[in-house]
Structures are given as C-alpha cells and as structure tokens.
Amino acid sequence: MRLEPINNPSFARKLVPPALALSATILIASLLAMVAGANPFSVLGLIIKGAFGSKFALLETLNRATPLIFTGLAVAVAFRAKFWNIGAEAQLYAGALITVLLGTGALAWPSGVILPVIALIAVFAGAVLLLVPALLKTRFGVDEVVTTLLFNFIFLLFISMLLEGPLKDPMGMGWPKSARLIPEASLPRIVDGLRLHWGFALAIISALCVWVIQTRSTLGYEMRAVGLNKQAAGFAGIPVNLVLVKTALLSGGLAALGGFSEVAGLKGSLTLDLSPGFGYTGIIVAMLALLNPLGVVIAALFVAGIFVGADSMSRAAGVPTYLADIMLAVALLLMVLAIMLTRFHVVRD
C-alpha cells in the first residue's frame, strides 16, 4: 500500500475520515467497557450524561475545559510556527505562582484593578519563562523540545520547594499549600450560584484573539510563514528569529493565563496538584484542533467532556476512569491518521 497526495481534497474527503476516527474511538471504548464487564451502551450514555447531561455536569465540563483551552492555544500558536513548546505545564504554573504571590495580600486594591494587574504580570512571567528556551534556540540552536520539557521538571520542583518553604500556608495544617487568595483577587462567577467563573470567558476571548491575530495580523502571517518554510521566509525578509521569540512570548503568556485563571477562578490557592497535566493534554487538544485556535475550544470541550463524563460514569458503572485516558489516546492516534487520510489517497499495489 502506498500514499498518493490529493491536490484538492473535496469537502467529504475532509470530513469523513475525522468522523470515522471519532466513531472508531467510541467503538474501541465500547469494547473495553465490555471487557470491564459493563454494558457499552450504558457506559457511553453515562459518559455523555456525566459530561453534558445536567446543568451541573455541563458547568463542570466547561470549568475543566478552561485551562485546556489556554494550554491548547499556547501549543497551537507555537506549533503553527514550528516552535515545539512542550513546556505549557511549567508556564501554567508560572502564571499560578504570580497569582498567589500577588493575590494573597501583597497587593490590596479593588478587584477591577488587582485582577488585570495580576493577569498581566502572570502573562509576563509565562512569556519570560519561555523566552529562555526561545533565545537558546535562536542564538545557539539548542533544541526547544528538550529545554521546554526539562523546564517542566525544574519548575515543578521549584514550586514544590516554595510550597514546602516560604509560600507554605501557616494555617494549612502542614500541607504543602499556599495561603488563599484575598477575595478581591478571585475571579467572580459568571452567574451567581453557578460554579462557572470568568476564566472560561477569558479563554473564549483569548481563542478569538489568537484566531484574529493568526488570520489578520502581520505577526500571524509571519508566524505561519516561518512555520511553513523558514528559508523562504528569511529570504523574503521576515526576521525569522524575532518571529520565533514573539511566538514564544505569546505561547508562554497564554499558558500562564491558564494558571492565573485556574487559581483565581477555581482553586483559590496553589498546590502541586493544581494541574493534572494540563500542559501536556494541551498538546492533544491542539493536535485534535489541527492547530486552529477556534478548533481548540471545541477540542478542549471534547477532551474535558471525556474526563468529566468518565469520572461520573466510573462511579455509576464501576468501570475505571482510565477509560478516559484510553479514549483520548485512541482519539488522538486515529485523528492523526484521519488527518493524513484527508490529504492522501491510499493506493493498493
């Protein structure tokens, strides 16, 4: 079997393989549910119901999708310029760290002032954190995959050190946990009484902004040009290294905004389990979205829905929540295959 490129894929050609990938994912999840001794239809039903079936479930999914939108955008922006930022996890924690550093009493201003200030400084921190790998790459040719990945470990250990030491909440009964944010530094709920906070709205706005930047701005044009063909971009006069640095700043800032949103909107304090791998799951989200910023929102809702739904399904049906991880992994692999099939024919010899 061989692959032949399709020059002008039809609409059906673009749509059918991803739909098949989704169906196959559901089929495989059903088989696994059967192996676990449950009725596959009820398991799938429970996942969907647990993710979107009630107001509470839906809000839970939206909350869970919020940090994934931010990290997904961070990854999508960077990957578009072929800057492989694997470090959204660390950048998210950088944003979270700034939030508790400034939001637990260091600044005592009204909400309308303190929140934008913290958000901006958080973005700045995430950007600076990714600036180091970016400069190492553009100046010395150091592979950013290695540096950004290793930064995750360094930064998490640094956070751990802070939480065991200077940032440790004296009222925390010995847990490695920061003090709680003052009320002014917390993001309010969008609707009173419902758990959904303004971080979700911020995520949607960020996605729209990134989309507009990518399709309308010269920076977006430069980022896409550098990602597609560095040599031609450089020849034409696009300052390739500068564009890579700008991309890194934007990417790091978006991930850090996710950390700010998570602490200020949901958790209220910083712990080491703030992120169950949002930075890494962001890569899956971005890939599923084909690096499209608006697609990131949909992909993040899909991924969050599977996680939230699987949690609830697990309680009801007794099937382990690992099913969610498997579904995501299968979905990602099949989607990568499906994307290839939208661009190539399979020809049998």
């Binding site: 896409r224 040009a225 597609l228 063909n229 040599q231 031609a232 971009a233 020849f235």
Partner: peptide, 8 residues
C-alpha cells in the same frame, strides 16, 4: 525552497 512558500 526560497522563492515561495508551497502551502501559501
């Protein structure tokens, strides 16, 4: 390689 960007 240098004159154009193929996917643009």
């Amino acid at each position: 390689k240098t004159g154009t960007i193929a996917d643009f």
